[in-house]
Design a protein around this nucleic acid. Structure first.
Ligand code: NAD
Ligand code: NAD
Lengths: 220, 220
DNA sequence: CTTAAATACAGAAAAATTTCTTTAATAAAA
DNA sequence: TTTTATTAAAGAAATTTTTCTGTATTTAAG
């Protein structure tokens, strides 16, 4: 699966999705290095930290357009900027979240998303006990309020953290009010039109990988 | 990346990791169908729901050893059992969670893991306000208690939901007390010995994919 | 009873992704 | 200064994963 890079240099280059998934991890690490006063980082260094092939890191980073220095690596400040630009982390992305339960609350208060440029500006629920409260400064409204707000604000991302039974309805609502991308955490196959970007995050997929490896290594 | 299937039939067949990641999603869907009184499901049906290639679903399901019926599909009860067996969901896996904050609490109270055979039996924290309380019936202990308990119970999985700064220490502790697999949610590259199964779940990887697609489609 | 449509499945092909190889550059060590 | 070691980068090769093709089967329709 591929996506495209739209650099300031006008051309559009296909970028593998696995690369897109690894890039924010690189960004995170080099930001930590930056805070520790490092100015350069090499691909082999990143590779050791993440147990990846060094040439894979090089190839991934090459999509940012940053040129590394032989025997030194990449200049961190330049790389941070290029990665943030490529990933869209330095643009503002406003999001709505529906389903202010345990997982929803965790996502709302999570400060890490700020660094990704995504800001959850409002949450919605149908539980009377939650409506009117706020979570880490983010107000929780009744789902009905949804319409007015999307029209006034420019919300591109809708996050679904309701029970699976409510998820399709919520998705339909979101689509109706012009949201462009849906980030769904409910374990259900949502039906959405072609033009809507749908990202399912099924946490149990990771668990399955763990259990499988456990079973596998138990035999040896 | 591959993993192996250890079926009751003694042989061991390599299973692609992408397949392992899709299997629990199939399981989830067919369990829903089962509740709706369906008795058979076909690969094209699953493929439509998940927007996958039908032959890919067929290939994935073939690893379970279940034989489908032409023009009808797979028998749901048989498939559920085979998937649960393959994924290890019908075996008991006990887990400890360290870092009973927002995300930790969400994972602890999440009932969905029960269906995967994983049970979080205790949580640990260093925050005095949390120690001594319980979350959905799961007690929160001081991190010090960790040792005694791992020795008495048979804990195979350690879940890390502490801030990144504490994660490496927690991981070292977990390894010291004999845990086999670490499921890490902190955005940091953990150093663990070869024999430890490490699964990082970096939620922002999914966000990166969304933002990238948003940028991409905005240009068209 | 015959035909048509839908499906599973195996194998081949294609596509995507990762890893390997080579080269050139350059910083650090001798 | 010369040598050595480390690295980036480009391209080739290998591997992995997905998609395509063809065949057989079987249910349902005509
Ligand atoms: N908690 C986890 O760790 C976890 C992990 C993986 C997946 N999930 C999934 O995420 C979703 C949320 O999980 P949770 O643990 O936070 O559950 P939760 O019950 O704590 O939260 C669900 C929230 O959605 C609200 N809600 C219900 N129907 C609604 C509707 N029609 N419109 C708006 N809001 C509605 C509820 O009032 C509640 O506040 C579930 O689908 C769950 O399967 C959760
Ligand atoms: N909340 C999210 O949606 C989200 C998303 C992605 C990643 N994460 C990551 O998950 C982790 C937890 O996030 P959170 O939002 O739940 O944060 P949180 O602050 O709510 O929870 C962290 C918990 O860890 C405890 N803790 C701190 N140091 C500890 C130690 N040494 N030993 C044991 N416990 C300790 C704290 O007391 C707190 O209860 C962070 O690393 C965060 O980056 C969170």
């Amino acid at each position: 699966m591929e996506t495209t890079l739209s650099s300031s240099a006008k051309q559009s280059v296909a970028v593998p999705e696995p690369t897109v998934r690894r890039l924010p991890t690189y960004l995170n690490i080099i930001k930590n290095l930056q805070q520790a006063e490092h100015t350069y980082v090499s691909a082999p260094t990143l590779a050791r930290i993440l147990r990846l092939d060094p040439t894979q890191v090089t190839k991934d980073l090459s999509y940012t357009g940053v040129i590394g220095k032989t025997r030194v690596g990449y200049q961190i400040s330049e790389l941070v900027e290029a990665l943030e630009d490529f990933l869209g982390f330095n643009r503002k992305h406003e999001a709505f979240l529906v389903g202010a339960g345990y997982l929803g609350s965790a996502l709302i208060q999570y400060q890490g998303f700020r660094e990704s440029g995504m800001r959850i500006v409002a949450a919605f629920d149908i539980d009377k006990n939650k409506i009117g409260t706020d979570i880490a400064g983010v107000p929780v409204f009744h789902l009905e309020k949804f319409r007015d707000l999307t029209e006034r604000l420019h919300i591109t991302i809708g996050i679904i953290t309701t029970p699976p039974s409510a998820a399709q309805n919520v998705a339909d609502l979101m689509i109706g009010w012009g949201i462009k991308a849906i980030w769904n955490f409910a374990p259900i196959g949502l039906k959405v039109p072609e033009h809507i970007i749908l990202q399912d995050t099924h946490i149990y997929a990771n668990l399955a990988v763990i259990l499988n490896k456990l079973d596998h290594t138990a035999l040896k």
